[in-house]
Amino acid sequence: MRGDRRCRTAGRAGSAGVRAAQQLTSSRGLAWVAFLLAAAALLADPPGAAPDGLRAAVPAAGSPALAVDAIALARWIRDAKPGLRVLDIRAAAAFEAYHVPTARHVPRNRLDAALPEPGETVVLYTDDGATAAAAVAGLRARGYDQTFWLEDGLAGWADRILEPTLRADATGAERAEFREIADLARWFGGVPRTDAGAPANAEAPASASARVKAIRRGC
């Protein structure tokens, strides 16, 4: 790798320190540093250790057991479940635009100031649910067991509570269930709809009041 060594202007007949630094930052030096750090990593976290143990168990797509679906949450709120705290962990502007009734706003990076007390049930939500799931996993890993995330986030809330849609081909049991959901929806100011003739797998767009956009952490 000689050709890749960094050009140095002449005249720096350096002390041993400068020379050592030069050696270390030469390609060969860097390669050795990298190899030694990697070998040490192998020793520090050997093949037999827990898979990805350093990255405390974050469920890949959000464990369902930690999720509460929109309808269950709606029932909890309507029935004033004792100790229930609903936290909106999105940006303030999004919270102002629309939030689940009774929710409090806590930005995601200030959750440490709003940790659950014993006996409380805390439900976190975001626009799509994924970020809330990660936050809940983090809290659970620290021992806060009564924390849940809202499945499918506000998008699911908009679909299932604000604009629940009864499919045209619903069975009798589904219609009976829908009556309760429709009551729940109206309690929250939602508008139950019946879907005459639309195909069963059509995506119902959320209403303008609940237009949601996922928090962007990626690129």
Partner: peptide, 28 residues
């Protein structure tokens, strides 16, 4: 085909150190 926030160590059931070492050696 989503795998969520998967990582190679979790996917292959090995430690992070193992993967780090292998990738470094491959890169060198």
């Amino acid at each position: 085909t989503p795998l969520g926030a998967a990582t190679l160590p979790a996917l292959f059931g090995v430690s992070r150190g193992t993967v780090v070492f292998c990738i470094t050696v491959l890169a060198l």
